Amino acid sequence: MIIVPEREIAGLMTREAAFDAVEKVFAAMASGDAYNFPVIREAIGHEDALYGFKGGFDKAGLTLGLKAGGYWPNNLEKRGLINHQSTVFLFDPDTGKARAMVGGNLLTALRTAAASSVSIRHLARQDAKVIGMIGAGHQAKFQLRAALEQRDFQKVIGWNLHPEMLSNLQEVADEAGLPFEPVELDGMRDADVIISITSSFDAILGADQVGPGTHIACMGTDTKGKQEVDPQLLKKATVFTDEIAQSVSIGEAQHAVAQGLISESDISQLGAVINKTHPGRRSDDEITLFDGTGVGLQDLAVAAAVVDLAVEKGIAIEVDF
């Protein structure tokens, strides 16, 4: 079995490689060549932690496995560790033998950012100039860096429940040589693209706080009960997702579906746009929304790419198992 520890991931996986892996797996999902297993995600009753498993099988890429991990909200304050902790396990689809164990923390951040970035490439207006961020935590920096590569953005605006954290967004904007402006939520009407990346259980962004032609990537809702935007916004928008079953059960769409504002048939896979079996955006005034629930196949795709790179560079740890 091959082991690629967390400390090696930064030197192996790039944003570009993560984007390519996630885009390909979304396309495979939409064409029926890959599928995700049901998600298990539970509050364990210890340290306020959420723990679970996401897995799947990509028949095209012959990638089989799962990611185990979750969210420990006290990690940073108590232990100096990031709150999201995970490990990816890959198995040989021909024999069932364990193939690899890969550190999943940075990979999770990169693949989550890649997913919203893929949605921006395929759904945002070509002339998008202002990007708005809702949320300014650890993951927000990854989201913003990846998103800025998809359009010729000229300004970053941001909102966070705790304004002192907006310095994270300012840092990334400075790196890109772009101006950054903190705004109230009403200020998001000026954004051409909005990324929400929070752990909220209450709607933050209202339907009337989004202008015509905006593309929104909702990336924080991945558990039953979580919510980042007003369900009325999904009624106004053309809704896309990574996995429809997850979107209606644990994603942002769960609330709009429960309230009867939209139905499952109103949601399309982003992979269908990539495969050109769905036209995607139809007009410059259309609001598009990507419900990024986070699927196991994303984790497996980036982990498999890392294993190949680790072997190629001679830094993979091999053990008998």
Score class of each variant (00 low, 15 high):
residue 1 M to G: 05
residue 2 I to Q: 10
residue 3 I to R: 08
residue 6 E to L: 05
residue 6 E to A: 11
residue 10 A to I: 04
residue 11 G to T: 04
residue 11 G to D: 06
residue 11 G to N: 05
residue 13 M to L: 15
residue 15 R to A: 10
residue 22 V to I: 14
residue 22 V to T: 10
residue 24 K to S: 15
residue 28 A to M: 09
residue 30 A to L: 06
residue 31 S to G: 13
residue 31 S to K: 15
residue 34 A to Q: 04
residue 38 P to A: 11
residue 39 V to M: 13
residue 42 E to V: 14
residue 45 G to I: 07
residue 47 E to K: 14
residue 49 A to C: 12
residue 50 L to Q: 13
residue 52 G to M: 09
residue 55 G to L: 04
residue 55 G to W: 03
residue 60 A to H: 08
residue 63 T to I: 13
residue 63 T to E: 03
residue 63 T to C: 04
residue 66 L to S: 11
residue 69 G to T: 11
residue 70 G to K: 12
residue 78 K to F: 03
residue 83 N to H: 13
residue 83 N to W: 13
residue 83 N to M: 13
residue 83 N to S: 15
residue 84 H to T: 14
residue 86 S to G: 08
residue 87 T to H: 06
residue 88 V to D: 02
residue 89 F to T: 03
residue 90 L to V: 02
residue 90 L to Y: 02
residue 93 P to K: 05
residue 95 T to V: 04
residue 97 K to A: 08
residue 99 R to V: 01
residue 101 M to H: 01
residue 102 V to I: 14
residue 108 T to I: 11
residue 108 T to C: 15
residue 113 A to W: 12
residue 113 A to E: 13
residue 116 S to V: 08
residue 117 S to L: 05
residue 117 S to K: 11
residue 118 V to K: 12
residue 120 I to D: 08
residue 121 R to P: 03
residue 123 L to Q: 05
residue 126 Q to W: 09
residue 127 D to P: 00
residue 130 V to Y: 03
residue 135 G to Y: 10
residue 136 A to N: 11
residue 139 Q to P: 10
residue 140 A to G: 14
residue 141 K to I: 14
residue 141 K to G: 15
residue 141 K to S: 15
residue 144 L to Y: 02
residue 145 R to P: 08
residue 147 A to K: 14
residue 148 L to Q: 10
residue 149 E to V: 07
residue 149 E to F: 02
residue 151 R to E: 05
residue 153 F to M: 05
residue 154 Q to T: 04
residue 155 K to E: 14
residue 156 V to C: 00
residue 157 I to D: 04
residue 158 G to C: 03
residue 160 N to W: 00
residue 163 P to C: 00
residue 165 M to P: 00
residue 167 S to A: 14
residue 167 S to Q: 11
residue 167 S to C: 03
residue 175 E to F: 10
residue 179 P to E: 06
residue 183 V to D: 12
residue 185 L to S: 07
residue 189 R to A: 04
residue 189 R to E: 03
residue 192 D to G: 07
residue 195 I to R: 09
residue 196 S to H: 05
residue 196 S to E: 10
residue 197 I to Y: 08
residue 198 T to R: 10
residue 202 D to H: 13
residue 204 I to T: 08
residue 208 D to P: 03
residue 213 G to I: 03
residue 213 G to L: 07
residue 214 T to C: 11
residue 215 H to N: 04
residue 216 I to Y: 00
residue 220 G to H: 06
residue 222 D to L: 10
residue 223 T to G: 00
residue 224 K to P: 00
residue 231 P to H: 06
residue 232 Q to S: 09
residue 233 L to W: 01
residue 241 T to M: 09
residue 241 T to K: 04
residue 244 I to F: 09
residue 246 Q to F: 11
residue 255 H to R: 07
residue 256 A to D: 06
residue 260 G to S: 09
residue 260 G to N: 11
residue 262 I to C: 13
residue 264 E to Q: 12
residue 267 I to E: 08
residue 270 L to G: 01
residue 270 L to Y: 05
residue 274 I to M: 05
residue 276 K to N: 13
residue 280 G to K: 02
residue 284 D to A: 14
residue 285 D to F: 04
residue 286 E to G: 06
residue 287 I to Y: 10
residue 288 T to D: 06
residue 291 D to G: 07
residue 292 G to K: 09
residue 295 V to H: 07
residue 299 D to L: 03
residue 302 V to L: 09
residue 303 A to Y: 01
residue 303 A to G: 10
residue 308 D to Y: 01
residue 308 D to A: 11
residue 309 L to M: 12
residue 311 V to P: 03
residue 318 E to Y: 10
residue 320 D to T: 09
residue 321 F to S: 06
residue 321 F to Y: 09
